[in-house]
């Protein structure tokens, strides 16, 4: 039987196995790093069907977050307002404005506006707004100065590492419940003293906060 391959193919095969293995290992390291850093879109505004401006509605018009995100205090989801909510004002205001085209369409056809998600937990991680608000975590700690944003983007990476930074030591971030909706809140200079008091006062379960099953349930 003739030899189909010259002997040096052996070396080639060995090297390509080694190279392939190294490539796989590099890929397995690089992909998660990419997924958790470059890919988490901090500071990148998300395109929306209507150029809704929080700074106009919240700061100039003085509308409270809860007028639109009505379930944020009582449920896991904060809720994004239906067209009915926009129409409580826009049934009279800026009628026929081309910027609001998608709103009129949605209202006439009785179909929801398709907002693009900005923050989105993967299905295997559980998040609950009400649990955070009732324990003194303010909107601006996680979402930044929404009241100054003309568009909408993430100000925090929302990775597990980021969640854990607070869950390991919540006293560094807690504020009084009455300040949760205050977007301009500045922590006092003795935040740790206040934070430790609040952990006790709100009965924050610090053991639960670092257990895998709290978020992966």
């Amino acid at each position: 039987m003739p030899q189909y391959f010259p002997p040096n193919v052996n070396a080639f095969v060995r090297w390509s196995i080694l190279g392939g293995g190294a490539f796989l290992v590099a890929l397995l390291i690089a992909l998660p790093i990419y997924a958790r850093t470059v890919n988490n879109a901090v500071g990148v505004p998300v395109e929306q069907p209507i150029a809704f401006a929080h700074n106009l509605h919240v700061t100039q018009l003085g509308i409270d977050c809860r007028y639109c995100h009505s379930t944020v205090e009582v449920a896991a989801s904060a809720n994004v307002p239906s067209s009915h909510v926009c129409m409580t004002c826009h049934s009279q205001i800026r009628l026929g404005a081309p910027q609001l085209e998608a709103l009129w369409l949605s209202w006439e056809q009785d179909l929801p506006i398709r907002w693009n998600r900005v923050h989105d937990m993967p299905g295997f991680a559980y998040f609950d707004h009400s649990a955070h608000l009732t324990n003194g975590v303010g909107c601006s700690t996680c979402h930044g100065r929404v009241d100054q944003m003309a568009g909408m983007w993430k100000t925090e990476p929302m990775t597990m590492g980021w969640c854990m930074e607070c869950h390991r030591a919540p006293e560094r971030f807690l504020r009084p419940r009455s300040e949760v909706f205050n977007m301009a809140y500045q922590p006092p200079s003795d935040q740790l003293t206040l934070g430790r008091e609040l952990v006790v006062a709100y009965d924050v379960n610090t053991n639960k906060l670092i257990q895998c099953s709290t978020c992966h349930r």
Partner: peptide
């Protein structure tokens, strides 16, 4: 087998989430 783990099928689970 390892690459099969890279799918996002645990991130997009077959349940309907709010919104």
């Amino acid at each position: 087998l390892l690459l099969a783990g890279c799918g996002r099928n645990m991130a997009e689970q077959p349940r309907v989430e709010p919104l």
